[in-house]
Amino acid sequence: MNHLAYRFIFSLLCLYLPIICLSQKVKQPPEKSVWKNIDSLRIAEIEMGKSKFTPFIAPSYTPEMKFLFSAGGLFTFTNDKKNPLLTRSSIPFSVGISSNGSFQLSVRANLYSKGDKVRQVGEFWIKDMPDNYWGVGYSNGRNREQDRNTTGYHRLWWRFYDKIIYQYKTNYFVGVAVDLNKTEASDLNPLMEDDPFILRDGTEIRNSGIGGVFQFDSRDLAVNAYKGMLLDVSFIIYGGLLGGENHFQVLEIDYRQYKKVSPLRRVLAWQVKAKTTFSKAPWTELAQLGSPFDLRGYYWGRYRDESMLFGLLEYRHMFQRKTPNKQGKLESRSGFAAWTGLGAVGQEFYNLRGKWLPNIGVGYRLEVQPRMNLRIDFGLGVKSNALYFSFNEAF
């Protein structure tokens, strides 16, 4: 890991730690003896605005990292004592080491302040791993055999992404997004050394971009919505500002809808997302499928091209208890989710015929904090599958 990665870790801590520290100045809950059980205490502490941390240690399996052993947690807090439950900020994070020698660090933040007038969504990733590159286009991803001499290489990658938006009217937001990232590819296989995109863009690629964001968001809770919709449109221009070396643009359109299908906690959710790049984006920044947040089960980055489109339909079901708990409630902390989806990559959106990739999966949900779930998903793709451990829903 080079010194620039360490500088960005330091920048990330400088960005989020002041917010975390400020959140500690909240009213303390009553003595534990007042509450009948641990679950009552847990809910009472959150309702009174106390910060909470839920740790986890778990194995997982993905096609790109094989068996991954991760440790991390979910940290939540609020700066709004009048509405501490529904506007709680969340920072899930994890650090993992895998059976193929990979290292991964991920931090994802959803922060709310000024009575939900200001929102901040941030991500920070580091991956140091043996990886595979099939080339650009659906045909390469589908037909090229995975092997050390055809797809294998080593990748060191980090990314810092931050989006800050302001609510100027009920449910309407505008703001800015910043994206800084770098990829270092080494130990290339013979096919990669002759790949036209590698020859054009190189193996050490630094990008920096800044752009605008428009959002309509009527969801009742962003990280686990029961109802409402989201329309997010962003356009980022990459160039020499902030140390970038490549000039290109990226347009993303993300539509999500949520509908409660019963008075209980049972929700039908769907998402359609499109991404397209302009002006010869480098091979590392082309639209990709297979992350833990879209077509779960595919190798992340196997399918890449100038444009990407996918759709997901997911049913989420939280169980009911047969008998009330000590609080007199029938709501269980366990549940499940099942989804199906379809995605494609290509040069243009209007030419995706014959390039579609199906996806199905099922997952377990455990409510570790009110409306905050531990997510365990198993997804299936074409000749591919993956098991994910994470916090909050995929979308």
Score class of each variant (00 low, 15 high):
13 L>N: 14
18 P>W: 14
24 Q>G: 04
31 E>M: 03
35 W>T: 04
40 S>E: 11
42 R>K: 14
44 A>C: 01
47 E>G: 04
50 K>V: 10
52 K>C: 05
53 F>Y: 14
54 T>S: 11
59 P>V: 06
63 P>C: 05
63 P>E: 15
65 M>I: 13
75 F>Q: 12
81 K>W: 03
87 T>L: 13
88 R>L: 04
98 S>F: 10
110 N>M: 09
111 L>T: 13
116 D>E: 13
122 G>E: 15
125 W>T: 13
129 M>Y: 12
132 N>C: 10
133 Y>G: 03
136 V>Q: 02
139 S>E: 07
142 R>A: 03
144 R>E: 01
147 D>T: 07
150 T>D: 01
150 T>P: 00
151 T>P: 00
156 L>Q: 08
165 I>V: 09
173 F>N: 01
191 L>M: 06
196 P>L: 03
198 I>V: 15
200 R>I: 08
201 D>A: 02
216 F>V: 12
227 K>P: 09
239 G>A: 13
255 Y>R: 08
262 S>H: 04
278 F>D: 01
290 G>H: 04
291 S>K: 13
293 F>L: 12
294 D>I: 14
299 Y>G: 12
304 R>Y: 04
307 S>E: 05
317 H>L: 15
319 F>I: 06
332 S>K: 00
333 R>P: 00
339 W>S: 00
347 Q>S: 11
354 G>I: 05
358 P>C: 09
365 R>I: 03
373 N>Q: 05
380 L>V: 07
382 V>H: 07
384 S>L: 07
389 F>I: 15
390 S>D: 10
392 N>F: 03
